[in-house]
Design a protein around this nucleic acid. Structure first.
Lengths: 230, 230
DNA sequence: ACCTGAACACCGTTCAAGT
DNA sequence: ACCTGAACACCGTTCAAGT
């Protein structure tokens, strides 16, 4: 009698890597709220508590998942930039890779965007962003604050969008209909500015807002660099 | 024999408002993860399931909490602005009120910053921000995208900081020590840019980064308004 | 060295029953 | 009209026992 009749479930021998992989697949397939130790056990064909032989607790798994997607973003950026790429286009590459990660890892990003593991992929991302900002000729204090402005903006904006994307479909619909309730305020009195912009409020897209924000930050940095440089 | 010997617990008669109030106090006192239907029942001196006579489910409570803090931010902004306040200072007032809300409502903000209820306080905030941006003379499309850039930046950045602030103390310490592990990369090889900025990376403060980001966005908007206006 | 499975102390939510 | 309390289907985690 086979012990593997339930579709998934294969590896008898667990490892940190196989658990992280299974967790990411589970989240991608069924959302962030499906990530439970028991579901993971079923996924891996193993008793749920075997998990605790490889991670001290669930939070450690969440941080490991965060490292995995930070690593993915870092690798993706490498494919988008060349040595002669301008600093503006390097920032755009990080923005693009971060946004693309939402499609692949929204659940994982929602769980981890406000967390820090201190792992290698995170150190790589810090180094990468600092190296983009450093040649602009700011003071060390200013270099660091510009780097953090970019890092926090990427994390916070993609994290917020990922949080929404990883909501249960029914909650997502609830929020979308709440927006249309706001924007369809046609009730005669109140909210004149909203009523003047209903069409635009409904049609604007999240990706366009994200890109517009990044361009605004790039322009601001360029203006500061010009002032500081000469 | 009194039925109210346990410190808290007083109202026999529940209402949406008393539940939201108790939930906010509970979160402020014990963190976002302490908000459970059962704990709320104890807090209110009532069987846990009485909750379901006033809210369809826990998510509805979360959205009501979100409305409460959106209302607080809106009221706070009203005390910070006058009719003659410049658009720049109006944006700074919203930023300041949003940041102050983290101290008071970090747990509530962490739960709700990526959600929309469509309630009155949210409509007020949308109207407020649109009215700040509208006089700058952009096209309707541009007006809306600038409004959303500001709204999303406020929500995402304060939400990310609130998420961290509302973490259990032990997880907060874990993340802080992870940062110092990143920044103390003194291991001879690798991460040269990080090593060049260790001092600044350690000393930079989240509030300063938030303020710097807002100022950069304000500058960017001003530059665009100048181009568009003439 | 790793996995199992019972157990503990929790969750959100439903529903028949009470007042 | 609202509250109670048993019950259901879950959680994360611990620990003695197995191999």
């Amino acid at each position: 009698m086979s012990t593997n009749t339930s579709g998934r479930a294969q590896p008898r021998q667990l490892s940190k890597e196989s658990i992280v992989q299974a967790a990411i697949e589970l989240i991608a397939r069924e959302g962030a709220q499906a990530l439970t130790v028991r579901r993971l056990g079923i996924e891996l064909g193993v008793d749920a508590t075997a998990f605790y032989r490889h991670f001290p607790d669930k939070d450690a798994l969440v941080l490991a998942i965060g490292d995995h997607f930070a690593g993915w973003v870092y690798e993706r950026v490498q494919t988008l930039v060349a040595p002669e790429t301008s600093w503006q286009d390097q920032i755009r590459a990080v923005a693009r890779a971060s946004w693309e990660a939402i499609e692949l890892f929204s659940g994982a990003m929602a769980l981890t965007f406000a967390r820090t593991s201190g792992g290698e992929p995170e150190r790589h991302m810090v180094e990468l962003l600092l190296e983009i900002v450093e040649p602009l000729g700011f003071t060390p204090e200013r270099t660091v604050i510009v780097y953090r402005m970019l890092a926090d903006a990427f994390l916070a904006l993609t994290g917020m969008n990922a949080t929404f994307e990883s909501l249960e479909p029914s909650l997502q619909e609830k929020d979308l209909s709440a927006w249309s309730r706001i924007y369809a305020v046609q009730s005669g009195k109140g909210y004149p500015a909203i009523r003047r912009h209903v069409k635009e409020l409904i049609s604007v897209e999240d990706k366009a807002i994200f890109d517009f924000t990044i361009e605004t930050l790039i322009r601001g940095i360029a203006a500061m660099a010009e002032e500081a440089g000469k």
